[in-house]
Design a protein around this nucleic acid. Structure first.
Lengths: 210, 210
DNA sequence: TAGCGACTTGACCGATCGGTCAGTTTTTAC
DNA sequence: GTAAAAACTGACCGATCGGTCAAGTCGCTA
């Protein structure tokens, strides 16, 4: 580890990553209270004491995980401008959110669990940066509607519609699998679901592709 | 209790109801593992031993609650026929599902928690009666599309879209409140959200209100 | 009044919870 | 080579977990 200017991961980085991934698995399934450090340690294949040595406490681990999730989502969601094409923006929004459900389902379920508990750790985030994010998008949607470039659809509820419909395939995967009789969701399933969502929502907003 | 042909609730009925309602509150928030009998007993204002006297075990209480929820949903969802008007059927579907989110949000969150955990107790229900319910609806939707009475939209994913969008206002209430800056969702909010959903989804399926 | 069944509850059980700590091993720096 | 720093872990702590049990209380009928 001499040439560690910016090279291979250190011991700490490697173990923290293992713990984070294991914790995301357990927290996403059982929620904050239902998850135990022992279960996380078992999933990470480390002694419980070692987990606590790295993360300090259950609370700190949970908060760090939430922050990692919010950071991931922030970087994945592109910015938009009033000059953009509404259909392109909304389609990109749907497809990138659906891609997050496919690539990071555990993050989505972790977030869902936090909200179900009443968002005890994310309340200020919701009322702060997340609210600003929604408001800035909503303002643009509203202007598009005023200019006749799309139907007058309440922009906030439209965003909720897109959020819920795309997160459904991560959060309610067990339900989707049980009802469709599949063992897992393939790339083709996500692509078809995305196509269907784009078809209905774009047309429902008075938009046509391209 | 002499004239108990069908009269006032017995002691058992009264206490079981208190326990069920308290348990739904705790399970909906913290999930199966995260909920404790002690917390349920506190919410029901009964000693822990008394709760266990009535319900037997945590597992039995949880299963009974899930069954109560599924029964409620079954009775609330109306049946449909191929001869019905597509727009009316889908609008009724959206509005009745949204009404459930408004009147029974805890049931919705309880179900959401169960699915997030991988549906350990509801797997056979999902692959059984729920799958049949979806398939029968989907078949009618498909025939409507073949007859040109609505756009060819994948019916299963359309049902998922309606489910997720309506349940969002129960399951993610904390997020909705944080972003809209409100303290609670009023009747007007549910009405406006329902209108918005009907507007987008009906038009998105090539339907106009009759 | 005696007895019976339904109801109530505090005390208690072993297991597990989140977390601490002392002590050891391993790695790093000089 | 040696000492300091980092990594690691088993033993242990008080609290809480789901659940049991015996000793009640209470209203009813015989």
């Amino acid at each position: 580890m001499s040439d560690s200017i910016a090279a291979e991961p250190t011991v700490r980085e490697r173990n923290e990553r293992r713990i984070f991934d294991a914790a995301e698995l357990v927290f996403a399934r059982h929620g904050y209270r239902g998850a135990s450090i022992q279960a996380i340690a078992a999933a990470a294949e480390l002694p419980k004491s070692n987990v606590l040595y790295y993360v300090g406490s259950k609370r700190r681990l949970y908060v760090a995980l939430l922050e990692r999730t919010m950071a991931r989502w922030n970087t994945a969601l592109s910015d938009i401008s009033e000059d953009d094409d509404p259909a392109t923006v909304i389609e990109t929004f749907i497809r990138s959110k659906m891609a997050l459900s496919q690539t990071h389902p555990l993050s989505s379920r972790l977030f869902a669990n936090e909200i179900l508990q009443g968002a005890p750790f994310l309340q200020e985030t919701l009322a702060g940066s997340m609210r600003e994010w929604v408001e800035s998008r909503a303002a643009i949607f509203r202007r598009w509607a005023e200019q006749g470039r799309m139907d007058p659809v309440d922009p906030v509820w439209l965003i909720f519609l897109i959020w819920s419909a795309t997160q459904h395939y991560a959060d309610f995967e067990a339900q989707v699998l049980g009802i469709t009789g599949q063992a897992g969701l393939a790339d083709a399933d996500f692509a078809a679901a995305s196509d269907c969502l784009c078809q209905v929502i774009l047309k429902g907003c008075g938009l046509t592709r391209g």
